[in-house]
């Protein structure tokens, strides 16, 4: 096995992942548009601008995807795995995703993958070994932090009682602040259906807050 770090151009004919370690050793990406390296996701050649785009998207949207998946009912122990699968899908389809449409694409993937994880709940064996969530920033006040945590748990409980159809629309609109048009696109639903589900979800949310 030979190091590939210094083989920048022309593009070597690496098919698939020649070596997991070699792929890692190729980074960070230089300023070059030459497609030289395979991705870690699907083995196809990826240009450096594409790698940079993917990196930026992970950094920009990781919180959004993780939070969305959690609010869509995936357990804490599986959120990271599900979020990774969302970005794996993005990696595979990166060239098909229009610039500026990435967030909607990620939301759509997250909804589908979260649904799959919910279906498989209890049948999966893998458990995350590392803590996932940042502690809420509550100005260092432990009482406030605890209060914040209870609010999150209360919201989880309410969302869990809504049913997937309503909670998905509610989360996308009220928490992640997608527009109704975006939600209609993400869920492939008519606008009227989105609006009616949102109204019903709000009723359920308000009922859930009653003592």
């Amino acid at each position: 096995m030979s190091p590939a770090r210094d083989q920048m151009a022309p593009a070597p004919a690496i098919q698939g992942e020649e070596s997991l370690a070699v792929v890692d050793a190729c980074l960070p990406a230089p300023d070059s548009a030459t497609p030289t390296r395979p991705t870690a996701a699907d083995g196809t050649l990826r240009t450096w601008p594409e790698r940079r785009r993917l990196t930026a998207l992970v950094k920009q949207h990781w919180d959004f995807v993780g939070r969305l998946i959690r609010h869509l009912g995936v357990g804490d122990e599986e959120v990271e795995d599900a979020a990774q699968q969302v970005f794996l899908t993005l990696d595979r389809k990166l060239r098909e995703v229009e610039l500026g449409r990435e967030r909607a694409f990620l939301a759509s993937c997250a909804v589908h993958i979260a649904a799959r994880f919910r279906r498989l709940r209890g049948r999966r064996r893998e458990v995350s070994e590392a803590p996932l969530w940042e502690l809420p920033a509550a100005g260092g006040d432990p009482e406030q932090a605890l209060f914040q945590q209870r609010r999150v748990e209360q919201l989880d409980s309410i969302l869990g009682g809504m049913g997937d159809e309503h909670s998905t629309v509610f989360v996308l609109y009220e928490i992640e602040e997608l527009t109704m048009a975006e939600i209609a696109e993400v869920l492939s639903l008519p606008a009227g259906t989105v609006a009616s589900r949102l109204r019903r979800a709000r009723q359920l949310f308000q009922e859930g807050l009653k003592p």
């Binding site: 792929v23 890692d24 980074l27 991705t39 870690a40 996701a41 790698r51 993917l54 990196t55 992970v58 950094k59 990781w62 919180d63 993780g66 939070r67 959690r70 609010h71 959120v79 990271e80 979020a83 990774q84 970005f87 794996l88 990696d91 590392a130 803590p131 996932l132 969530w133 940042e134 809420p136 920033a137 914040q148 609010r151 999150v152 919201l155 928490i175």
Partner: peptide, 22 residues
């Protein structure tokens, strides 16, 4: 409270590693 919830930076970094980006 729901909006300030966010996954750890370490989990994001693990994703970058898993994607071969870090």
């Amino acid at each position: 409270a729901a909006r300030v919830r966010r996954p750890s930076a370490a989990s994001r970094q693990r994703a970058l590693v898993a994607l071969g980006l870090a």
